[in-house]
């Protein structure tokens, strides 16, 4: 244990995802010995993000404006929506350059054991987007693990009665992984080979 504010910094850093106590300590001491200007740049970047970044009113992707870059782009196909769990998954799918439609960020996956049901996600917003008839295909690109699969099952059953084509990225994604870790070649192939969901 260190004293006072040094320990406070280590504790705060240790709360970040993927940062264990060892790394938190390493980062803290790196910051202590860094140039003040460098540290100010980091502090500025963090507070800028918190002040300026919000969630797209349509798809909940991160953006600095009311609408995200993709929802504003008239060249993006409005008839296909790719549903993902998190905004970072939008980045992963964009990297493949296979997808020219729009997105919908759910904000997680259904997880009853964690107390998260469909009402805790942006499911109602998705259904509202589908109600005007402009969308013809939904790609359910939730994570290739059980919660992602069950979330896709739930959504497919909800959406199917609207007469839309409902697909799910297919081959190559091993079950149990996180979408963000898939390399773009594998993920790209999964999009090309997406299968129709039959529920």
């Amino acid at each position: 244990m260190y004293e006072g504010i040094v320990q406070d910094l280590i504790d705060e850093l240790g709360r970040l995802p993927g940062v264990g106590p060892k790394s938190a300590q390493r980062i803290a001491f790196h910051l202590l010995s860094a140039e003040p200007a460098e540290v100010r740049k980091l502090v500025h970047a963090i507070s800028e993000v918190k002040e300026k970044i919000r969630f797209c009113e349509v798809c909940a992707n991160v953006t600095e404006d009311a609408l995200c870059r993709i929802c504003r782009d008239p060249r993006r196909d409005p008839s296909v929506i790719c549903v993902v769990e998190e905004a970072k998954d939008v980045v992963a799918v964009e990297r493949t350059r296979e997808f020219r439609g729009r997105y919908h960020v759910l904000g997680g996956a259904i997880s009853p054991i964690e107390g998260i049901g469909p009402d805790d996600l942006r499911v109602r917003e998705l259904m509202t987007r589908l109600s005007d008839g402009a969308v013809t295909e939904i790609i359910l690109a939730t994570d290739p693990n059980l919660e992602g699969e069950a979330t896709a099952t739930y959504l497919a059953r909800l959406i199917k009665p609207l007469g839309l084509k409902v697909t799910r990225p297919a081959s190559g994604l091993p079950v149990g992984g996180d979408l963000e870790y898939a390399d773009e070649v594998t993920l790209g192939r999964a999009f090309e080979g997406r299968r129709l969901l039959d529920v």
Partner: peptide, 16 residues
């Protein structure tokens, strides 16, 4: 290492 999509045991360690 089970969350990397290259991991083959990730699927074996899912709930159920």
């Amino acid at each position: 290492g089970v969350r990397r999509t290259s991991s083959r045991i990730g699927a074996r360690l899912e709930p159920f």
